[in-house]
């Protein structure tokens, strides 16, 4: 496949993934955007907003928002896996909050399937703000169902 064709296919994937996200009322309410989607991986971001603040003294976004973003991103990555699961649901998700996200900045989650079985997808994800990738806001690991 030449570069243009691949870019075209990726854009198409991203467009389908964006439609998938738009169909989820909560993802739309948080104004999530699909930035990248590939075989078992996804990058989804969302803007900072005043009504998502968890600590009014600092303006830092609530941890629950980061959970929602990571959960959605993991789900999208499962659905984008080449084994083509019919649907997915979260079994468990553990989030480590490494530091406060900076107020006003977009938050971007990257999720990948690091192991897929017939019925379970083992996931890793990371959440970043504008700072570099070596200084994440949060990381997550989880198990998701893969329904066939």
């Amino acid at each position: 496949m030449n570069g243009d064709a691949r870019d075209g296919a990726e854009e198409n994937h991203a467009r389908i993934a964006q439609q998938f996200i738009e169909a989820i009322p909560h993802a739309r309410a948080l104004r999530m955007r699909v930035d990248e989607i590939g075989d078992g991986c996804a990058v989804i971001s969302m803007p900072w907003d005043e009504h998502l603040v968890g600590d009014p003294r600092s303006g830092v976004i609530h941890g629950g928002v980061v959970s929602a973003l990571m959960d959605t991103c993991c789900g999208a990555a499962v659905m984008a896996h080449s084994s083509q699961p019919r649907s997915t649901a979260t079994i468990d998700l553990r989030i480590d909050y490494m530091r406060a996200a900076r107020p006003g900045q977009r938050i971007t989650a990257r999720a990948e399937v690091y192991h897929m079985t017939r019925s379970v997808a083992f996931m890793r994800a990371v959440a970043l703000d504008d700072d570099d990738t070596s200084n994440p806001v949060a990381t997550a690991t989880g198990a998701f169902t893969a329904e066939r």
């Binding site: 169909a23 989820i24 009322p25 909560h26 993802a27 739309r28 309410a29 609530h62 941890g63 629950g64 928002v65 959970s67 929602a68 973003l69 990571m70 959960d71 959605t72 789900g75 649901a89 979260t90 998700l93 989030i95």
Partner: peptide, 19 residues
Amino acid sequence: RKLIGNPQLPALHGGVTAA
């Protein structure tokens, strides 16, 4: 309605439950 994560079922968003 804005708490929905799966419009087909429908079901609450896992992130909402977590939050």
